Amino acid sequence: MATRLEALGNDLRDDLWSARLLADDPEVILRAHRDYFTAGADVATTASYQATIPGLMRRGCSAAEAERLISLSVEIAGRARDEHGSGLVAASVGPYGAYLANGAEYTGDYDLDEDGLTDWHRDRWHLLAGTDADLLACETIPSYGEAQALARLLDETPDVRIWVSFSCRDEAHISDGTPLKDAAAVFSGHPRVVAVGINCTQPRYIPSLIRCVDNFPVVVYPNSGEDYDPVAGTWTGFTEPDEFAQAAVAWFAAGASLIGGCCRTTPEHIRGVRARLS
């Protein structure tokens, strides 16, 4: 989403990232969703990853306005899906680290325990669970405690379906060092968890990580493969869309059921994946 919005001329150097455009230019978010559906996507993931009630209020919104903008993210994705004529809408539930805007979604270095994380997520969770989204996409989850918090919230919403994808530091562990196998097991016995897997992670780790997930369909949508320099604010190591699509074939062979792309992937990456897997 953010990669496409930047390509369409938007400066997202902001704590709210792409969520800022829910207020400033919702039509460009609609265009981004359209571009991915046209490229062959089956699922639109909403622009609510970094849209939190406290985050929006920190920027001057009232609580009611913050809730309206978060709900709007689902409405926009649903409009694009309806215009396309098929597909699903996954309401993005970003991690606490996205609100902190300090990179903690890649470390799990939090100042809240499981109870605190449950309370922090609760209002947005119930808001998104009450929309017309087909499911919630709990994304870039870096910590075992946050996984436990999300499982508790799932118990509070008996009609909602979710997928859970973790940010991972290597071939076997999520960002806080917990084995992915153990983090995924938090959701064992939850029939409304439609998939568990990995996102916002280097593609080279994906085949091994897929094998760490038992008893669930596996969702994978890694980064493009580029490396980010946080000091310079630049990316290096551009990955061609066809190279990414070739890797997706291997992920499918390793057992992934849902495949896409995260940071720095474009509609061309999705078009390539669609062509290869078809």
Rank of each mutant, 00 (worst) to 15 (best):
G97Q: 01
A98P: 13
L100N: 03
D109S: 13
R58N: 14
A41V: 11
E83C: 04
T38H: 14
L22T: 10
L100A: 12
H33Y: 13
H33T: 09
A39Q: 12
I53V: 14
P54R: 00
T38C: 09
G97C: 01
R124W: 05
L69W: 14
L100E: 11
A63D: 13
R34P: 02
S18A: 11
A80I: 12
H84E: 11
G87N: 00
L12Y: 08
D25K: 06
T107H: 05
A66Q: 03
H33W: 10
D115P: 03
G87Q: 00
T45C: 15
T118Q: 05
L22S: 09
D11K: 10
L56C: 06
G85R: 06
A77H: 12
V93L: 14
D14C: 09
E67R: 15
P26S: 04
D25I: 04
S86P: 02
D24M: 10
N102L: 07
R20W: 07
H121N: 12
L88F: 14
T45Y: 14
I70R: 03
E105Y: 02
L72K: 15
A39F: 14
L21S: 06
D119L: 13
R31A: 11
D115Y: 07
G94R: 00
L16W: 03
G78I: 02
A23Y: 13
A91C: 03
S73W: 10
R31T: 15
L69C: 10
M57K: 14
L117Y: 08
S92V: 01
I53K: 02
T107Q: 04
R13V: 11
R68D: 15
R81P: 09
W17K: 01
G87P: 01
L69Y: 14
A19W: 00
D11Y: 08
Y99T: 00
D15M: 04
T38W: 09
P26R: 05
S18E: 08
A77M: 11
D115H: 10
A23L: 13
T46G: 08
A101M: 02
L69P: 14
I29R: 07
D24C: 01
A64T: 12
I29P: 12
G87E: 01
D82N: 13
G78H: 11
D119N: 08
L72Q: 15
G103R: 04
A90M: 09
Q50E: 04
A44K: 11
L88R: 14
A19L: 00
I76D: 06
